[in-house]
Nucleic acid binder design. Structure first.
Lengths: 336, 336
DNA sequence: CTGAAAGCGCTTACAG
DNA sequence: CTGAAAGCGCTTACAG
């Protein structure tokens, strides 16, 4: 042969339900009945013939047609601020597993990738006829309005508090932070700083403050930055240069803490000897930071599963579910 | 009012094209014509009326109906081994931006999340009628067969080599590795180890070896592990305990290197004084490792854009495009 | 248990 | 420039 092998038969026209029906010698309806098992009783023999036809023609139902007819797509959307952030990457992954276990496909929308488009990233979802939406960020009121006009189930995850009657999921940020700081206090620290985001709905700063007050300790300095590696880095540089010397710091996220560690090392600070660190999130990389981070772990899997459960409506749990956190003690706090 | 405000009108029946047509006093077809701008000429006044109707009814086209009718979904799929891996997280993000810029939606499929289902994660795509598929892993032959039977454009990314006539994108792994090792050699190292995956298609180990040979240096030890934080950690522990003491190591990925750093620190090795490290990928977190990693950077954005370009067929580039890498010099190699 | 038929909401020749 | 109508591939009462 001079020519290379012919390409696979990429026939434009795909196999349809009618082809299967014809092949099996039944009506289109019957094919639907056996494929959508349970909808209608079908004779065993007929069923067999249909299944054979499906296999023989390697038939694949057209999802678009199915969606149009049923009015449901089996697709669930998830909006995250930035899927590159390890925390959200893990959360998305967990939700993906949970949706898949239910036969649903997850469509992830990065809102940062759509910033230029204003709230379009949300309204564009309306066209996709998603069966549900999981939102992992704090919605602006404008966004909230659009979301509720979508007329599809919505659940909020990664939330600091409830949002009206919209099912919401989060952890007990306040208690998690407080436990972390109590741990530091328990090991003799009295000058404990805080690195995190703006206060307000985020109760971690409050947890930190209350832990100190409860122990009759003065509030250490607080460094508020955006949640990013660079933010943590900058905050730690400030901390190092601050006259109000701290011997420990509670950092509101692992990512922030990793950025902070880089700055502390750069300035020659020994961790935990000169400054102890406790972080928040419990992401995988916290175990491989140097020193390994003591961190307040969030139960990702559990939250993801609960989010999907609520989305599908098979739960009557309260509007806002605050999952408990757990403190993972490693070297960065010097208490191991 | 005793009752709280009525909820937003979540009428089950959505606004359809007919509603818009009726409201605007035109036919359904005309509504399509103006919405799919360019398909047909429409009188300015008519157009105006339609647009007003769309706004007034806040009409959103039904994507499923559109897909069924057009035979295209405007959805592109992307298969990755694990979207939690920072490298893939960045790649996905870049592809997402590129697809969005073209008005396409990206559906990410985590193959690890579907392992239980064998190759189902791929064949399930067939139902979704994706307009194209970007695959960021090395396909098995079985998977390759399914993918090509899909009869949709496919492009491979994150590839070590070409795959027949399927458009593929990667970086010049060989040259990138060689440059990294040459850099180490240039700064006086003569006992340089390798940490990476299995050889074979991955030419990084070869680049490392050739750089050493070319400089008449003996091959240092090589530690082959799976690409993960834990893999890098284990490899570095081996390296530390190895009688064949190395003064430098080339690590095939940033993630592996971060795991390795943890082990090196744990064993008290000074970096770069006792052991210099050069990594590969150039991910964001490499800059915040301690010490900051010297690394061979991949041009993520460029590759992502090229992948989408090829998927849409507006390029006649060669089957396999190897993008050039660039060495980012930071402290871990001791040459800054 | 099985089938004929309407309908889901679009797009697109085809006629005017 | 505009509209009536067929068709995309399913699902689902409704009859038998």
């Amino acid at each position: 042969m001079i020519d290379s092998e012919p390409a696979a038969p990429r026939s434009r026209r795909a196999v349809t339900r009618s082809d299967v029906a014809r092949y099996a010698g039944v009506s289109d309806a019957v094919v639907s009945y056996v494929l959508n098992a349970g909808s209608k009783p079908v004779a065993a023999a007929t069923r067999e013939r249909v299944l054979n036809a499906v296999a023989a023609l390697s038939y694949r139902p057209n999802a678009a047609a199915r969606a149009l007819s049923r009015g449901a797509t089996d697709i669930v959307g998830m909006i995250v601020p930035d899927s590159r952030n390890p925390y959200f990457a893990e959360l998305v992954h967990a939700v993906d597993r949970a949706t898949q276990a239910r036969g649903l496909t997850l469509l992830v929308i990065n809102s940062d990738n759509r910033r230029d488009a204003g709230t379009d990233h949300i309204s564009s979802l309306a066209s996709r006829q998603l069966d549900g939406l999981i939102v992992a960020e704090t919605l602006t009121t404008a966004e909230h309005a659009i979301v509720s006009s979508l007329a599809i189930p919505v659940v909020l995850i990664n939330q600091f508090q409830g949002a009206g009657d919209v099912p919401s999921i989060g952890v007990d940020y306040y208690l998690g932070a407080r436990t972390a700081v109590d741990h530091l206090i328990g090991h003799g620290h009295s000058r404990i700083a805080f690195i995190g985001g703006e206060p307000g709905v985020d109760r971690r700063e409050r947890g930190w403050a209350d832990a100190l007050s409860a122990a009759d300790l003065p509030l250490g300095p607080r460094y508020r930055v955006d949640f990013s590696l660079a933010g943590g880095y900058r905050a730690a540089l400030e901390l190092v240069d601050d006259a109000r010397a701290s011997t420990a710091v509670f950092v509101a996220s692992d990512q922030l803490a990793i950025g902070a560690l880089a700055a502390l090392h750069e300035r020659g600070r020994l961790i935990p000897e000169q400054i102890a660190v406790v972080a928040f999130d419990g992401s995988a990389e916290s175990a491989y930071a140097w020193p390994p981070l003591t961190t307040v772990a969030q139960p990702m899997e559990g939250m993801a599963q609960e989010a999907v459960r609520r989305l599908l409506g098979d739960t009557t749990a309260p509007a806002f579910a605050a999952f408990p956190t757990s403190l993972i003690v490693r070297r960065s706090c010097g208490c191991e």
